[in-house]
Amino acid sequence: MWQETVSIAGPYDFQLALDRLKLDPLNVVVQNKSVKVPLTIESKQIVIEVMGTGSLEKPQFVVKGTEEKEQALQRLCEIFRWDVELTTIHKHFQETNLKLLFENHYGTPLILDFDPFSSLLKCIIHQQLNLAFAHTLTERFMQTFGNEIDGVWFYPTPEKVALIKVEQLRELQFSARKAEYVIGIAELVTTGALNFNQMKQMTNEEISSELIKIRGVGPWTVQNFLMFALGRENLFPVADIGLQNALRLYYNLEQKPTKAEMERFKEPWEPYLSYAALYLWRSIE
């Protein structure tokens, strides 16, 4: 067992980060103070606990694990965006019409999904579903094909998902197409045709052109993957109904904004569109 204390520059509101993680019932948030993170490092599945012990302006975390300390800490830094200076982003939005929104959600980080493969699968599973049933379907998938360590669920490996039959997912209430999409993505990862490690060095455009060729992957999925799997900071999925509703409420509009209106709204928010999207989602969660 190892333990490490990590201190970073503020602001960073770990409580708001945990609030967002709690929206997914598969995440293990403990007493609103810590979260247990499933990590797979060199084929080893390990559970790491991250506890917030600092303050908004002086964030500090106690991290506990059993093995692979250095690699685990490096991955946690990526997931929790400990290397991003939120002060710079906050100052940028003080000069925009989202100033009040960023004051209300001051210090909210853009937390990533725990690994890229599960992030892409989750995007596919959640497509065109209400959030409650999306979570239900994901839980069924995990409980059937994933595995549990210390109360924490791990997504099945690409190799395991590639061997699943469409009929098995249909029994969980997947549509036939969605089942084919999930299995197809796993097959691409297994054969090396889809390589998440290489994507870290690729541009958004290069990744988008590669992903959009995959059955079941559209612009909404690509943008969500770029934001929540890779942490890209300048994405704004205008087709997202949640963002449309958030903008309608924030600007007190009579109806949801059109795509053209959203394109105009977002111009001053670059190059931090992902944070604008995150804070707008937070405003209606």
Rank of each mutant, 00 (worst) to 15 (best):
F145S: 11
F61S: 05
L86W: 07
K165V: 07
E68Y: 07
V50K: 00
L39P: 01
E210A: 14
L226T: 04
T40F: 02
R20L: 13
P156M: 06
P237A: 08
G52P: 05
I241G: 00
N224W: 12
F145V: 11
A239F: 04
R215L: 15
K256P: 00
I284V: 14
V62I: 15
M51Q: 14
L110E: 08
A72P: 05
C123W: 01
T108W: 02
E233Q: 12
K33I: 07
E95T: 13
F141V: 09
E171V: 08
R81H: 09
L121Q: 12
R170S: 06
T87Y: 02
T88D: 13
N104M: 05
Q74R: 14
N27Y: 08
F236I: 02
S7M: 13
H90R: 06
F80N: 04
R170C: 06
S283G: 13
P268Q: 06
I46Y: 08
Q74A: 13
L100W: 03
Y251H: 08
P38N: 11
V152T: 11
E254A: 13
K122L: 04
A229W: 01
E206R: 04
K91C: 03
V222S: 05
N234R: 04
P116T: 09
V28K: 13
R215S: 14
I149G: 06
E167R: 09
I214V: 15
L73W: 04
K44C: 03
E267H: 05
E267D: 05
T5M: 02
A229I: 01
F265A: 00
N104E: 12
T136W: 02
P219Y: 10
R264C: 00
P109L: 03
L100I: 11
A162G: 00
M199F: 09
Y279V: 07
L243P: 01
N32I: 07
Q94G: 10
R232V: 07
E285T: 12
Q74K: 15
A72Q: 04
H92Y: 10
I207F: 05
R81T: 11
L163E: 15
W153N: 04
I79N: 03
L21A: 12
T157E: 13
F174K: 00
K160N: 09
Q60E: 15
P38C: 10
V29Y: 13
L121W: 02
N234I: 07
L16G: 10
L249V: 10
Q173E: 09
L39M: 05
K160W: 03
I89G: 10
W281F: 11
Y250V: 01
E49V: 10
V50C: 03
A17P: 04
T136Q: 14
P25T: 10
F117I: 11
S55F: 02
N97W: 07
M142A: 14
P109T: 08
A277C: 09
G242K: 02
K36P: 01
